[in-house]
Simulated scan of single mutants.
Amino acid sequence: MGFDESNTSREIRELALAAEKRIRPHIRRTPMEPAADLSRENEGRVYLKMESMQHTGSFKVRGALNRLLAMDESELRAGVITASSGNHGLATAFGMNRLGIDGTIYLPENASPLKVSMLKDLGAAIRFHGADCDRTEAFARQQAEKTGKIYISPYNDTYVIGGQGTIGLEILDRLPHVDCILASVGGGGLITGIAGAVKAVRPETTVIGCLPENSPAMAVSVQSGRILDVPMQETLSDGTAGGIEPGAITFDACTRLVDRWQLVSENDIRRAMVLVFERHRLVIEGAAAVAVAGFLKLAPRLTGKTTVIVTCGRNIDMGVFRTVVCPKAVL
Rank of each mutant, 00 (worst) to 15 (best):
G187L: 00
G188K: 03
G189W: 01
G189I: 06
L190Q: 05
L190Y: 02
I191R: 00
T192R: 01
G196C: 08
G196P: 08
A197T: 12
A200G: 10
P203A: 07
E204M: 08
E204T: 09
T205K: 04
V207M: 04
V207I: 12
I208G: 00
I208Q: 03
L211K: 06
E213G: 13
E213K: 15
N214S: 11
S215R: 11
P216G: 12
A217P: 07
M218K: 02
A219Q: 09
A219Y: 03
V220N: 12
V220T: 15
S221Y: 05
S221P: 11
V222D: 02
S224N: 14
G225H: 07
G225F: 10
I227H: 05
V230G: 03
M232G: 14
Q233K: 15
E234P: 12
T235D: 11
S237H: 06
S237T: 04
T240Y: 07
A241F: 12
A241H: 12
G242W: 00
G242A: 01
G242H: 01
G243C: 07
I244V: 08
G247E: 08
A248F: 05
A248Y: 03
A248D: 05
I249M: 14
T250H: 09
T250C: 15
F251L: 14
D252M: 15
A253Y: 02
C254T: 15
R256A: 10
V258S: 01
V258M: 03
V258I: 14
V258A: 01
V258E: 02
R260M: 14
W261K: 04
Q262S: 10
Q262M: 11
Q262L: 13
Q262Y: 10
L263Q: 10
L263F: 10
V264P: 00
S265I: 12
E266M: 04
N267L: 13
I269M: 02
R270M: 09
R270F: 11
R271T: 13
M273Y: 10
L275S: 14
V276D: 01
R281F: 07
R281P: 07
R281E: 05
L282W: 12
L282G: 05
V283A: 10
V283H: 09
E285V: 09
G286D: 03
G286R: 03
A287S: 07
A288Q: 00
A288F: 00
A288S: 05
A288P: 00
V290M: 02
V290A: 01
A291T: 03
V292C: 02
V292Q: 01
A293P: 00
G294M: 05
G294H: 04
G294N: 06
F295V: 06
F295I: 04
L298K: 00
L298F: 05
L298H: 00
L298T: 00
A299M: 04
A299K: 02
A299W: 03
A299R: 04
T303S: 14
G304R: 04
G304M: 12
K305S: 10
K305N: 10
I309W: 07
V310P: 01
V310N: 03
V310K: 05
V310F: 10
T311E: 13
I316K: 06
D317C: 11
D317G: 11
M318P: 09
M318C: 14
M318T: 14
M318H: 15
V320I: 15
V320A: 13
F321N: 09
F321V: 06
